[in-house]
């Protein structure tokens, strides 16, 4: 037997601890970025309300109100304070989960938002799901059958689709599935708790319309990732070891190839939330996007700010999830940090 060599400087528990620490460090560094991003984004949100110059006091007080009444209302709303104090006050409330009250009907903004949130989340979530499933399937086929007709068709599809705005796709889908075939409703929303089938029918067109772009981008990124990874030596190594093609693809290659696709996915989440505003308008659905749009038109600053804060939180949460997932899938990438 050859001389035994020292396999490592560390013991087994130390190693496992080291790996766990590396993952924690990555989560920590993601959070370390997310927290400042949250404060900067919410500061911008707050300043948007300030620069809008809207003052609800006069409207609330009515035509006959004396300047004194108006001043009292302004004081009640905290609008007479210096701006930094107003911000601190607002941020304190936000951190406590209080997004303020609507200037128009006195209902807490959070209540308004959380009434509408399920609708938007249904659409965006379903679009995300459809995007992941469709994009992964297409990307896998194109990447594995690289250079085939299917691969070229996927590339063409991705190029065409990503040049179409979601609302155009939405109109096409309405034309086909609602007007010609009559399978799906062209507008309206049914809560899942009332009628799951109806819920699915109601959200499928807007969700699909939103997802085509995600499908195209995920498919492209995954294809590129797969083509690169499939030419790596470890794939040859796995073949020599006698692993099955399926195992090589799904256990070994996919996790290493998924990086760019996952990153793109994280970038797509804001687009899905933003796209929901347009789609909800087209399909006349009372979602959060519609609430934000309506409130903006009415000058209802707290509600608009509230929807923005919730969106920011959703986006940051998605980014965190993607980063943690990447850290689990590709531990080697942690070393570079």
């Amino acid at each position: 037997m050859t001389a035994a060599i020292d396999s490592s400087r560390a013991s087994v528990p130390d190693l496992r601890l080291g790996h766990a620490k590396a993952l924690l460090r990555q989560v920590g560094s993601t959070l370390g970025i997310a927290v400042p991003v949250f404060f900067v984004a919410t500061l911008i949100t707050f300043l948007l309300g300030v620069v809008s110059g809207l003052d609800p006091a006069a409207a609330i007080a009515g035509d006959a109100a004396s300047p004194k009444t108006i001043a009292r209302i302004r004081a009640d709303l905290g609008l007479d304070l210096p701006m930094p104090l107003q911000y601190l006050h607002w941020m304190g409330e936000v951190l406590r989960g209080d997004l303020g009250t609507s200037w128009f009907n006195g209902v807490p903004a959070s209540e308004l938002i959380f009434q509408r949130l399920p609708i938007s989340l249904s659409i965006a979530g379903m679009a995300l799901l459809a995007g992941i499933v469709g994009g992964t399937a297409l990307g896998l086929v194109a990447g594995v059958r690289q250079g085939s007709r299917l691969d070229r068709a996927t590339t063409l599809f991705a190029a065409v689709v990503s040049s179409l705005p979601p609302f155009v796709v939405a109109f096409l889908l309405i034309l086909i599935f609602s007007l010609w075939l009559g399978w799906l409703p062209s507008s309206g929303y049914v809560p899942f708790s009332e009628d799951p089938a109806g819920w699915l029918a109601a959200i499928s067109i807007p969700a699909v319309a939103l997802s085509v772009d995600v499908v195209a981008d995920i498919a492209r990124q995954l294809r590129t990732g797969l083509v690169g990874e499939l030419s790596e030596n470890y794939v040859t190594g796995a073949v020599v070891r006698g692993l099955s093609r399926r195992r090589i693809l799904f256990v070994h290659v996919l996790r290493n190839a998924a990086g760019p696709a996952l990153t793109v996915l994280a970038l797509k989440v804001p687009m899905l939330i933003g796209g929901a505003v347009v789609t909800e308008a087209i399909f006349n659905m009372p979602g959060m996007g519609k609430l934000a749009a309506d409130s903006a038109l009415r000058g209802d600053v707290p509600v608009v700010q509230g929807t923005l804060v919730v969106s920011i939180l959703l986006i940051l949460a998605c980014n965190l999830c993607v980063n943690v997932l990447l850290g689990i899938l590709q531990p080697a990438s942690r070393r570079r940090n």
Binding site: M1, S7, S8, P331
Partner: peptide
């Protein structure tokens, strides 16, 4: 097998990632 190819402490090699090993290892 890890023992046979010369690792004194096979259990310590087992959980390591390739980038944590030297070329010879």
């Amino acid at each position: 097998l890890l023992g046979r190819v010369g690792f004194r402490d096979a259990e310590a090699v087992y959980p390591q990632y390739p980038h944590e090993l030297s070329g010879g290892m």
